[in-house]
């Protein structure tokens, strides 16, 4: 009896459980208070689980990168550039699956660029990626002339299903989100590489002294983010059948917010995939929930702000408790 109580207490006093509490509260509030219970309507759930989770997939990578102690503010710009590359490849008539592979490679390359500037130039990644954020967004605007272009991939139904279809009743984006979270979670918590990520973020000097190639760890994490951005770019462009140079705008801070809500430390070394998973869901649920509640969009960021502050305070409180 006492054993279970101790365990229950440990469970409550960890940051990622707090975040699940926030998640449950949000879902309940939106379900109960949305007009005609529209939030829990199957149609809305489907929208949330497809469109909403595109962002969440990307946030998983950003959280992982933050645990190793680095930022990526260029995610939205990597996304839009990748989408543009996909559009151009699509227009030449190349097989979309091949295009996807190429675009994933482009994403990895852009992530690698961020990493090399940060690691070799010893520049804080906040600054590096602030630069590449502007560069890739601007470059894409320049190339596309800011115009929207049609990109209808439905000529390849298999491709469309893979990125924007349903399996049974479940939108594939949900499956991708869960799959990526599980893979990244296994890497982070059960794989040797995960220990290197934590060690690098927690105490880089120690990690280096213990023979961990911390630069390589960071490079790989940046590349994972790049690949996820490229993946989401392809998923989004397949769904909308249209390229827009505004894709991914504002996602960089939302992704940081998702990670922080999920208990990730801005200083690196602290965080969990479970927490990031929930944080990424929370951001998407707030965005969707407020729309369904017919609350003007301007409120969205007010609510983001409140949830971030609440999460940070509660995590700080929890950490004090667990230390005492």
């Amino acid at each position: 009896m006492s054993v279970t109580r101790v365990k229950l207490r440990d469970f409550l006093v960890t940051p990622s459980t707090n975040v699940y509490l926030v998640l449950v509260i949000l879902v309940l509030v939106f379900s109960v208070f949305s007009p005609q219970y529209r939030f829990s309507d199957p149609d809305n759930i489907e929208i949330l689980l497809s469109i909403g989770l595109e962002f969440s997939i990307l946030a998983l990578g950003v959280g992982l990168l933050m645990i190793c102690g680095e930022f990526d503010l260029s995610v939205g710009s990597i996304l839009v550039f990748s989408a543009y590359v996909f559009l151009k490849l699509f227009e030449t008539g190349i097989n979309p699956f091949l295009s996807l592979l190429i675009v994933l490679g482009v994403g990895a390359l852009l992530g690698l660029t961020n990493a090399l500037i940060t690691v070799k130039g010893q520049i804080p990644s906040f600054v590096t990626t602030l630069g590449t954020m502007m560069f890739w967004r601007g470059f894409t605007l320049l190339l596309s002339g800011g115009k929207q272009s049609p990109c209808d991939v439905s000529i390849s139904p298999a491709f469309l299903t893979m990125l924007n279809g349903k399996i049974g009743n479940i939108p594939v984006q949900t499956i991708w989100f869960v799959a990526f979270a599980i893979i990244l979670g296994i890497i982070l918590h059960f794989h040797r590489f995960g220990n290197w990520i934590y060690a690098t973020g927690d105490n880089q000097e120690a990690a280096r002294a213990m023979g961990i190639n911390t630069n390589l760890v960071k490079i790989i994490c940046f590349m994972i983010v790049g690949v996820l951005c490229a993946f989401v770019a392809c998923s989004q462009i397949s769904r909308t059948a249209c390229f827009t140079s505004r894709a991914g705008e504002g996602w960089e801070f939302k992704a940081v917010a998702a990670s922080v809500i999920g208990g990730t430390s801005l200083l690196g070394g602290i965080g969990s995939m479970g927490g990031i998973f929930a944080g990424a869901l929370i951001i998407s649920i707030i965005e969707n929930g407020l729309v369904v509640m017919r609350i003007p969009y301007s409120w969205t960021y007010v609510v983001f702000g409140l949830v971030i502050l609440f999460s940070v305070f509660s995590n700080a409180f929890v950490q004090k408790q667990s230390r005492g």
């Binding site: 040797r192 220990n195 290197w196 934590y198 060690a199 927690d202 105490n203 000097e205 120690a206 990690a207 002294a209 213990m210 023979g211 961990i212 070394g269 602290i270």
Partner: peptide, 19 residues
Amino acid sequence: EQALAGDLSIARNIFMGRE
């Protein structure tokens, strides 16, 4: 003091880099 990562567990610290 530099050789340890404070937020990681004892076991993860001991095996850091040679898991």
